[in-house]
Each structure stands twice: as structure tokens, then as C-alpha cells.
Design a protein around this nucleic acid. Structure first.
Lengths: 131, 131
DNA sequence: TTAACTGTATTAAGAAAATTAACACAGTAT
DNA sequence: ATACTGTGTTAATTTTCTTAATACAGTTAA
């Protein structure tokens, strides 16, 4: 369900946050669907429950999941309430696209990002220039 | 020129990398223009030169700057040679946009990201739903 | 009701990563 | 020469992340 990359410099709890968030926004985990319990996921990934707990706690802070003591943690249906997160992502996306343009990706290519929600690559690799 | 946020969980050298990269891709630092020296930037930000060195070293690895011992570090004109970085950004952008959609940003709004390279906000804030 | 789950909290220790410190060497420019 | 520049090294320090070992209370099913 989620895989950890120990060569990655980013902390484990961040990788878990990203992994779960991705599962949620892609619909792999539906609204109000139950997430693996803190302890079970910890066992499954062979890490400490506290690390999972931290990830869950922060995801709840971001509005992506909600937790009910005794029952479990579940995916939030509409996290759109928190304006801040949306602004943050919006800004980050703008910056990434600016950088892509700087790297030679054309306006037309960028439009592909809007159309096909899944696959795709920066496509037309420009011919090599020797520096 | 660059500001550090000590409340940010991300390491300083990462913040510096992002800051400089942004200055470069936005053109604030032009092609072959000299960046602040390792020592001067360290003094300016009140941090250790080694931390700056690490940021510069990694930025060079990513192709955004090049360094000449004795002279200084300069912005690369065409970093487009490294296909990997472009793929990475492309993928990351796709994911961000998927998440924005999940947060309720419409297809039309996303298009605004393509047209106006600078300002803008997620615009139409949908009316509040009480959860 | 007992047993096995759930989330949450706390305190301490350990491990890993980031940052600082103090140098040194060689190339460049004035 | 003097003062810059990037680069390299080693060690200590600080910060962050991760683990460990519990505990408590609510939930669920046998």
C-alpha cells in the first residue's frame, strides 16, 4: 500500500504523509473509508507506531483525514474547507511550472498537464546543445 | 535576497537551494551572473559557510549553477541538459494539480496557472459547508 | 463482561541528520 | 602582497527523527 525509501533524505513520517495523501486524492481511499490502524501500519512497514501516529496527526491537521478514538482514522470527504492548504499548493504549483518553463518545456506541453490527469512525460526532448 | 524561516522544518540548505533556484528561474539572476560568494552569503544570513557550500554544491549538481575556483559561482544559462530534473518536476507538478483538483479547484481555474505566469489565487472560494 | 481492537498521550533513550567550528590549500584579481 | 574566490577535511555540537515502553479510555465482537 505504501512503500518507504530509506535512501530518501526526507523523514519517514513525511513519506507516509505523502503516500497516504496521494491515495486519498486519487480516490484509492474513498470518502470515510478506513485507513489502516496506527499499529497495523507500523507493523506492516516495520517501523515504530509513534512515527505513524505523527503522520496521521499531521494529516488530520491538514484536513485530509479525521480520527475517532476507539474506531479508527478515515479519509475526509471534503478537505476543501482549509483555504490555506489550497493557497499553498497553488503557489507551489506556480513555481514548479515556472521552473519547467525555464527548463525548456513549452506552453503547449504544459497544457498536457491539464488534459491527461494520469500519464505523460515532458515529451519533445530538445536536441542536445554542447555547453 | 534570500530569507530563512527557522520555523520551517526543512533544513536551511534546502531553503537556500530553493531560494537561489527561484531567483535563477525567474531571471532575477541572469545567465552567467555571479552569485554571492559562499562566505559573504554565510555572513549575510548569519550561518556557517559550510551550509552555503552544501547548497551551492547541490545546485551545481542539478545544473543550475557552475562554480569556478578562485572566481565565484554563476548561474547556468541552459540547465535543460539534465533530463532527470525535468521529469522529476513534471511528475511533481502532475501530483500537485491532482491534489488541487481534489481540493475543489476547477479545470478552468487551473488553466489560469498557464496563462498568467505571475500572480493569481485559486479564486472562487466556494461557499462554506459545515462539516 | 471479557478480550482484542482502536486513537491518544507521555517520558526517556537512541540514532541519524544538519549545522557549526576551525582550519588548510590553491586559484584569481587588484 | 593582500584579499578575495571555491573547495576539502575533521571534529564537535545541536537539532531532528525514530524507537522503546508504557498507560488510559473508547469501541467492538464473542
Amino acid at each position: 500500500m505504501i512503500s518507504l525509501n530509506y535512501r530518501d533524505s526526507r523523514p519517514i513520517y513525511e513519506q507516509i504523509k505523502d503516500g497516504l495523501r496521494k491515495l486519498i486524492v486519487t480516490g484509492a481511499i474513498g470518502t470515510d473509508e478506513k485507513l489502516p490502524s496506527v499499529r497495523s501500519l507500523a507493523t506492516q512497514l516495520s517501523i515504530n507506531p509513534n512515527t505513524i501516529q505523527r503522520a496521521y496527526n499531521e494529516l488530520e491537521g491538514e484536513g485530509y483525514i479525521y480520527s475517532v478514538p476507539g474506531k479508527g482514522s478515515f479519509a475526509t470527504g471534503d478537505p476543501g474547507a482549509d483555504e490555506s492548504r489550497r493557497r499553498e499548493l497553488w503557489e507551489k504549483t506556480r513555481e514548479l511550472m515556472a521552473e519547467l518553463r525555464y527548463l525548456g518545456v513549452s506552453q503547449e506541453e504544459l497544457m498536457a498537464l491539464l488534459e491527461e490527469p494520469s500519464g505523460g512525460t515532458p515529451a519533445g526532448d530538445r536536441k542536445e546543445e554542447t555547453r
